Amino acid sequence: MDKIDEIMYQFIDELGYDRASEIFRNVSSGKKLRSKLLLKIVGESEESLRLCAIIELIHLASLLHDDVIDNSDTRRGKPSINATFGTKRAIMLGDILYSKGFYELSKFDPKIAQNISDAVCKLSIGEMMDVELSRDFNTDKEAYRTMIYYKTAVLIEATAAVGANLTGLDEEKFRNYGKNLGLAFQLIDDILDITQDAQTLGKPNLSDLKEGKVTLPYIYLYENLGDEDRGRLMNLFKAELNSAQIDWVKSKMSRTSSIERSIKEAKELGKKALESIAQYNISELDHMVSSMIDREF
Protein backbone atom coordinates (compact mmCIF):
# COMPACT_ATOMS: atom_id res chain seq x y z
CA MET A 1 0.00 0.00 0.00
CA ASP A 2 2.97 2.35 0.61
CA LYS A 3 3.94 1.97 -3.06
CA ILE A 4 0.47 3.17 -4.07
CA ASP A 5 0.81 6.21 -1.80
CA GLU A 6 4.18 7.01 -3.40
CA ILE A 7 2.68 6.86 -6.89
CA MET A 8 -0.20 9.12 -5.85
CA TYR A 9 2.21 11.66 -4.37
CA GLN A 10 4.26 11.48 -7.56
CA PHE A 11 1.16 12.11 -9.67
CA ILE A 12 0.30 15.27 -7.74
CA ASP A 13 3.92 16.46 -7.51
CA GLU A 14 4.14 16.23 -11.32
CA LEU A 15 1.60 19.06 -11.53
CA GLY A 16 4.24 21.41 -10.16
CA TYR A 17 2.15 23.23 -7.56
CA ASP A 18 3.66 22.82 -4.10
CA ARG A 19 0.55 23.99 -2.24
CA ALA A 20 -1.55 21.23 -3.80
CA SER A 21 1.11 18.65 -2.90
CA GLU A 22 1.30 19.98 0.65
CA ILE A 23 -2.44 19.77 1.24
CA PHE A 24 -2.67 16.36 -0.44
CA ARG A 25 -0.14 14.93 2.01
CA ASN A 26 -2.62 15.74 4.79
CA VAL A 27 -5.29 13.50 3.23
CA SER A 28 -5.72 10.16 5.01
CA SER A 29 -5.43 7.46 2.34
CA GLY A 30 -7.58 4.98 4.28
CA LYS A 31 -8.10 1.23 3.94
CA LYS A 32 -7.52 1.07 0.15
CA LEU A 33 -10.22 -1.58 -0.27
CA ARG A 34 -10.34 -1.02 -4.02
CA SER A 35 -6.56 -1.39 -4.41
CA LYS A 36 -6.50 -4.55 -2.31
CA LEU A 37 -9.28 -5.98 -4.45
CA LEU A 38 -7.50 -5.20 -7.72
CA LEU A 39 -4.18 -6.62 -6.55
CA LYS A 40 -5.84 -9.82 -5.33
CA ILE A 41 -7.23 -10.33 -8.83
CA VAL A 42 -4.29 -9.29 -11.03
CA GLY A 43 -1.22 -9.37 -8.76
CA GLU A 44 1.39 -6.65 -8.29
CA SER A 45 3.02 -4.99 -11.28
CA GLU A 46 3.91 -1.46 -12.34
CA GLU A 47 0.70 -1.31 -14.38
CA SER A 48 -1.58 -2.59 -11.61
CA LEU A 49 -0.02 -0.31 -8.99
CA ARG A 50 -0.50 2.74 -11.23
CA LEU A 51 -4.12 1.76 -11.83
CA CYS A 52 -4.58 1.35 -8.07
CA ALA A 53 -3.19 4.86 -7.53
CA ILE A 54 -5.62 6.26 -10.12
CA ILE A 55 -8.61 4.56 -8.52
CA GLU A 56 -7.53 5.76 -5.07
CA LEU A 57 -7.13 9.35 -6.34
CA ILE A 58 -10.68 9.22 -7.69
CA HIS A 59 -12.00 7.72 -4.45
CA LEU A 60 -10.22 10.33 -2.32
CA ALA A 61 -11.59 13.11 -4.53
CA SER A 62 -15.10 11.86 -3.88
CA LEU A 63 -14.43 11.81 -0.12
CA LEU A 64 -13.10 15.37 -0.16
CA HIS A 65 -16.29 16.55 -1.84
CA ASP A 66 -18.42 14.35 0.42
CA ASP A 67 -16.94 15.97 3.54
CA VAL A 68 -17.74 19.41 2.15
CA ILE A 69 -21.32 18.37 1.36
CA ASP A 70 -21.78 16.90 4.85
CA ASN A 71 -19.83 19.70 6.55
CA SER A 72 -17.78 16.99 8.28
CA ASP A 73 -15.03 18.08 10.64
CA THR A 74 -13.30 14.71 10.83
CA ARG A 75 -12.27 11.94 8.46
CA ARG A 76 -10.87 8.66 9.82
CA GLY A 77 -10.11 10.17 13.20
CA LYS A 78 -8.27 13.21 11.80
CA PRO A 79 -9.47 16.73 11.01
CA SER A 80 -10.99 16.77 7.53
CA ILE A 81 -9.31 18.78 4.77
CA ASN A 82 -12.21 21.24 4.67
CA ALA A 83 -11.92 21.75 8.45
CA THR A 84 -8.16 22.30 8.25
CA PHE A 85 -7.68 24.16 4.97
CA GLY A 86 -11.16 25.46 4.20
CA THR A 87 -14.00 24.44 1.93
CA LYS A 88 -12.64 26.13 -1.20
CA ARG A 89 -9.30 24.34 -1.03
CA ALA A 90 -10.98 20.98 -0.31
CA ILE A 91 -13.20 21.33 -3.37
CA MET A 92 -10.34 22.40 -5.62
CA LEU A 93 -8.06 19.64 -4.36
CA GLY A 94 -10.84 17.17 -5.14
CA ASP A 95 -11.04 18.59 -8.65
CA ILE A 96 -7.26 18.25 -9.03
CA LEU A 97 -7.38 14.59 -7.95
CA TYR A 98 -10.23 13.81 -10.32
CA SER A 99 -8.53 15.57 -13.23
CA LYS A 100 -5.13 13.98 -12.69
CA GLY A 101 -6.75 10.60 -12.20
CA PHE A 102 -8.56 10.85 -15.54
CA TYR A 103 -5.40 12.08 -17.29
CA GLU A 104 -3.45 9.04 -16.08
CA LEU A 105 -6.41 6.77 -16.83
CA SER A 106 -6.36 7.91 -20.47
CA LYS A 107 -3.04 6.08 -20.87
CA PHE A 108 -4.71 2.71 -20.24
CA ASP A 109 -6.67 0.47 -22.60
CA PRO A 110 -9.95 2.20 -23.59
CA LYS A 111 -12.07 -0.58 -22.07
CA ILE A 112 -10.41 -0.10 -18.69
CA ALA A 113 -10.72 3.70 -18.93
CA GLN A 114 -14.38 3.42 -19.92
CA ASN A 115 -15.20 1.07 -17.03
CA ILE A 116 -13.69 3.42 -14.44
CA SER A 117 -15.03 6.62 -16.07
CA ASP A 118 -18.57 5.24 -16.22
CA ALA A 119 -18.34 4.31 -12.54
CA VAL A 120 -17.24 7.83 -11.60
CA CYS A 121 -20.22 9.34 -13.43
CA LYS A 122 -22.50 7.04 -11.47
CA LEU A 123 -20.63 7.80 -8.25
CA SER A 124 -21.35 11.51 -8.72
CA ILE A 125 -25.02 10.72 -9.35
CA GLY A 126 -24.95 8.72 -6.12
CA GLU A 127 -23.70 11.78 -4.25
CA MET A 128 -26.61 13.77 -5.64
CA MET A 129 -29.05 11.00 -4.72
CA ASP A 130 -27.67 11.06 -1.18
CA VAL A 131 -28.28 14.82 -0.95
CA GLU A 132 -31.82 14.45 -2.28
CA LEU A 133 -32.66 11.60 0.11
CA SER A 134 -31.29 13.65 3.01
CA ARG A 135 -33.89 16.36 2.53
CA ASP A 136 -36.53 14.34 4.40
CA PHE A 137 -36.72 11.22 6.58
CA ASN A 138 -36.50 8.55 3.87
CA THR A 139 -38.38 5.29 4.51
CA ASP A 140 -37.94 3.79 1.04
CA LYS A 141 -35.53 0.84 1.24
CA GLU A 142 -35.16 0.57 -2.53
CA ALA A 143 -34.23 4.26 -2.83
CA TYR A 144 -31.59 3.71 -0.13
CA ARG A 145 -30.22 0.58 -1.86
CA THR A 146 -30.03 2.36 -5.21
CA MET A 147 -28.20 5.29 -3.64
CA ILE A 148 -25.54 3.16 -1.92
CA TYR A 149 -25.04 1.20 -5.14
CA TYR A 150 -24.25 4.41 -7.02
CA LYS A 151 -22.37 6.16 -4.23
CA THR A 152 -20.19 3.27 -3.03
CA ALA A 153 -20.58 0.00 -4.90
CA VAL A 154 -20.07 1.20 -8.49
CA LEU A 155 -16.37 1.99 -8.09
CA ILE A 156 -15.73 -1.32 -6.32
CA GLU A 157 -17.72 -3.05 -9.06
CA ALA A 158 -15.65 -1.32 -11.75
CA THR A 159 -12.40 -2.21 -9.97
CA ALA A 160 -13.30 -5.90 -10.04
CA ALA A 161 -14.35 -5.57 -13.70
CA VAL A 162 -11.04 -4.02 -14.79
CA GLY A 163 -9.21 -6.69 -12.82
CA ALA A 164 -11.01 -9.23 -14.98
CA ASN A 165 -10.18 -7.17 -18.10
CA LEU A 166 -6.47 -7.28 -17.26
CA THR A 167 -6.38 -11.02 -16.58
CA GLY A 168 -8.79 -12.38 -19.19
CA LEU A 169 -11.37 -13.53 -16.64
CA ASP A 170 -15.16 -13.26 -16.97
CA GLU A 171 -15.88 -9.55 -16.53
CA GLU A 172 -19.56 -9.98 -15.70
CA LYS A 173 -18.90 -12.46 -12.91
CA PHE A 174 -16.28 -10.23 -11.33
CA ARG A 175 -18.53 -7.22 -11.80
CA ASN A 176 -21.24 -9.01 -9.81
CA TYR A 177 -18.68 -9.89 -7.15
CA GLY A 178 -17.59 -6.24 -6.84
CA LYS A 179 -21.15 -4.92 -6.82
CA ASN A 180 -22.29 -7.18 -3.99
CA LEU A 181 -19.05 -6.68 -2.06
CA GLY A 182 -19.52 -2.90 -2.34
CA LEU A 183 -23.15 -3.02 -1.21
CA ALA A 184 -22.24 -5.21 1.77
CA PHE A 185 -19.33 -2.93 2.65
CA GLN A 186 -21.57 0.15 2.75
CA LEU A 187 -24.27 -1.62 4.74
CA ILE A 188 -21.72 -2.61 7.38
CA ASP A 189 -20.36 0.96 7.45
CA ASP A 190 -23.89 2.22 8.12
CA ILE A 191 -24.40 -0.37 10.86
CA LEU A 192 -21.09 0.47 12.55
CA ASP A 193 -22.11 4.14 12.71
CA ILE A 194 -24.73 3.00 15.22
CA THR A 195 -23.03 0.14 17.04
CA GLN A 196 -19.48 1.43 17.53
CA ASP A 197 -18.16 4.21 19.74
CA ALA A 198 -16.64 7.46 18.49
CA GLN A 199 -13.08 6.40 19.32
CA THR A 200 -13.36 3.27 17.18
CA LEU A 201 -15.05 5.07 14.30
CA GLY A 202 -12.82 8.14 14.29
CA LYS A 203 -15.96 10.31 14.26
CA PRO A 204 -19.06 10.74 16.49
CA ASN A 205 -21.35 7.71 16.42
CA LEU A 206 -24.91 8.06 15.11
CA SER A 207 -23.56 10.89 12.94
CA ASP A 208 -25.52 9.57 9.95
CA LEU A 209 -28.85 10.53 11.53
CA LYS A 210 -27.52 13.98 12.42
CA GLU A 211 -26.38 14.46 8.80
CA GLY A 212 -29.78 13.41 7.46
CA LYS A 213 -28.73 9.94 6.31
CA VAL A 214 -31.52 7.46 7.03
CA THR A 215 -29.69 4.18 6.56
CA LEU A 216 -31.17 0.68 6.43
CA PRO A 217 -31.20 0.06 10.23
CA TYR A 218 -33.21 3.27 10.74
CA ILE A 219 -35.64 2.27 7.99
CA TYR A 220 -36.17 -1.14 9.61
CA LEU A 221 -36.55 0.59 12.97
CA TYR A 222 -39.16 3.01 11.60
CA GLU A 223 -41.15 0.12 10.11
CA ASN A 224 -41.35 -1.63 13.48
CA LEU A 225 -42.27 1.31 15.73
CA GLY A 226 -45.68 2.51 16.77
CA ASP A 227 -46.93 5.94 15.73
CA GLU A 228 -45.70 7.71 18.87
CA ASP A 229 -42.20 6.26 18.66
CA ARG A 230 -42.08 6.94 14.92
CA GLY A 231 -42.75 10.58 15.65
CA ARG A 232 -40.02 10.62 18.27
CA LEU A 233 -37.54 9.03 15.85
CA MET A 234 -38.37 11.52 13.12
CA ASN A 235 -37.84 14.39 15.57
CA LEU A 236 -34.25 13.19 15.98
CA PHE A 237 -33.62 13.54 12.24
CA LYS A 238 -30.77 16.06 11.70
CA ALA A 239 -30.68 16.77 15.45
CA GLU A 240 -27.70 16.98 17.80
CA LEU A 241 -28.36 13.91 19.93
CA ASN A 242 -27.74 13.82 23.67
CA SER A 243 -26.79 10.63 25.54
CA ALA A 244 -30.38 9.86 26.52
CA GLN A 245 -31.54 10.09 22.92
CA ILE A 246 -28.66 7.92 21.72
CA ASP A 247 -29.55 5.32 24.36
CA TRP A 248 -33.20 5.43 23.25
CA VAL A 249 -32.28 4.81 19.61
CA LYS A 250 -29.95 1.93 20.48
CA SER A 251 -32.54 0.40 22.82
CA LYS A 252 -35.21 0.50 20.12
CA MET A 253 -32.77 -0.91 17.57
CA SER A 254 -32.15 -3.85 19.92
CA ARG A 255 -35.84 -4.50 20.62
CA THR A 256 -36.80 -4.45 16.94
CA SER A 257 -33.75 -6.47 15.75
CA SER A 258 -33.12 -3.72 13.17
CA ILE A 259 -29.34 -4.16 13.38
CA GLU A 260 -29.57 -7.94 13.09
CA ARG A 261 -31.81 -7.69 10.01
CA SER A 262 -29.34 -5.29 8.38
CA ILE A 263 -26.39 -7.57 9.15
CA LYS A 264 -28.32 -10.50 7.67
CA GLU A 265 -28.82 -8.53 4.45
CA ALA A 266 -25.09 -7.70 4.31
CA LYS A 267 -24.23 -11.39 4.73
CA GLU A 268 -26.65 -12.34 1.96
CA LEU A 269 -24.91 -9.85 -0.33
CA GLY A 270 -21.55 -11.34 0.65
CA LYS A 271 -22.85 -14.79 -0.24
CA LYS A 272 -23.96 -13.51 -3.67
CA ALA A 273 -20.51 -12.03 -4.21
CA LEU A 274 -18.82 -15.36 -3.49
CA GLU A 275 -21.25 -17.31 -5.66
CA SER A 276 -20.40 -15.07 -8.62
CA ILE A 277 -16.79 -16.21 -8.76
CA ALA A 278 -16.99 -19.59 -7.00
CA GLN A 279 -15.55 -21.38 -10.05
CA TYR A 280 -12.25 -19.51 -9.71
CA ASN A 281 -11.64 -20.61 -6.12
CA ILE A 282 -9.64 -17.49 -5.17
CA SER A 283 -9.34 -17.81 -1.40
CA GLU A 284 -8.13 -14.22 -0.92
CA LEU A 285 -11.33 -12.89 -2.47
CA ASP A 286 -13.37 -15.16 -0.18
CA HIS A 287 -11.46 -13.74 2.77
CA MET A 288 -12.05 -10.19 1.57
CA VAL A 289 -15.82 -10.68 1.80
CA SER A 290 -15.65 -12.08 5.33
CA SER A 291 -13.22 -9.39 6.51
CA MET A 292 -15.43 -6.62 5.11
CA ILE A 293 -18.51 -7.97 6.91
CA ASP A 294 -16.94 -9.14 10.18
CA ARG A 295 -15.21 -5.90 11.11
CA GLU A 296 -15.40 -3.26 13.84
CA PHE A 297 -14.53 -0.11 11.83
Rank of each mutant, 00 (worst) to 15 (best):
S207M: 08
D247I: 08
Y222M: 03
T87L: 05
S62H: 09
A53F: 07
C52I: 08
L209R: 01
A158C: 14
S207F: 10
K173P: 02
S258A: 09
G30S: 12
V131E: 05
M128I: 11
Q245I: 08
K252Y: 04
R230F: 07
G30D: 08
S45H: 11
D190H: 02
L49T: 04
E228L: 04
M92T: 13
D13A: 10
L274Y: 09
S99L: 06
G43Y: 09
L97P: 13
K3S: 14
F11H: 14
R25K: 14
D109N: 12
D73T: 12
L233W: 11
R34S: 14
E268M: 12
E127V: 08
K107N: 11
L60G: 02
S262P: 01
S262Y: 05
L97D: 13
T139I: 11
L60I: 05
L15T: 14
A20E: 09
D247C: 07
F137C: 00
K32E: 11
E142C: 04
N26K: 00
R34C: 09
I293S: 06
R76Q: 10
R232G: 11
K111D: 15
E6S: 02
G168S: 10
L38T: 12
L105A: 09
F85V: 00
L15Q: 14
R261V: 04
V131Y: 01
G231D: 10
I263Q: 09
K151W: 06
M292N: 11
L49E: 09
D193L: 02
L64S: 08
Y98T: 06
L241C: 08
Y9K: 11
D190N: 03
N281E: 15
F137I: 02
S251R: 15
Y17E: 06
Q279V: 01
D208T: 11
M234N: 05
R50I: 02
K271H: 08
K210Q: 05
S258K: 04
L64P: 04
F297E: 05
L37W: 01
A278P: 04
Q10Y: 12
E104P: 03
P110C: 09
K40T: 04
D95E: 14
L37K: 00
D95Y: 15
K141S: 00
D118P: 00
C121L: 15
S117R: 09
G163P: 11
G77E: 10
S21C: 03
H59D: 03
E284C: 06
I69Q: 05
R89Q: 14
S62W: 12
Q279P: 01
E132M: 06
T200K: 07
G178Q: 08
G77A: 07
S262V: 01
M92G: 05
D294N: 15
K36E: 15
L60F: 02
S28K: 08
C52N: 07
E6V: 01
K88E: 06
I277F: 10
N180Y: 14
N82Q: 13
R232D: 13
E275Q: 15
N26T: 03
A90E: 08
L269P: 00
I54P: 14
N165K: 14
T146K: 15
L123T: 03
R261A: 08
A119C: 01
T146N: 15
A153E: 09
I191P: 06
L123N: 02
K107L: 11
S262C: 08
F297W: 15
S99K: 06
S290Y: 13
F102L: 13
K78M: 06
P79E: 01
L274G: 05
T256N: 01
K252M: 06
L241K: 12
N235A: 12
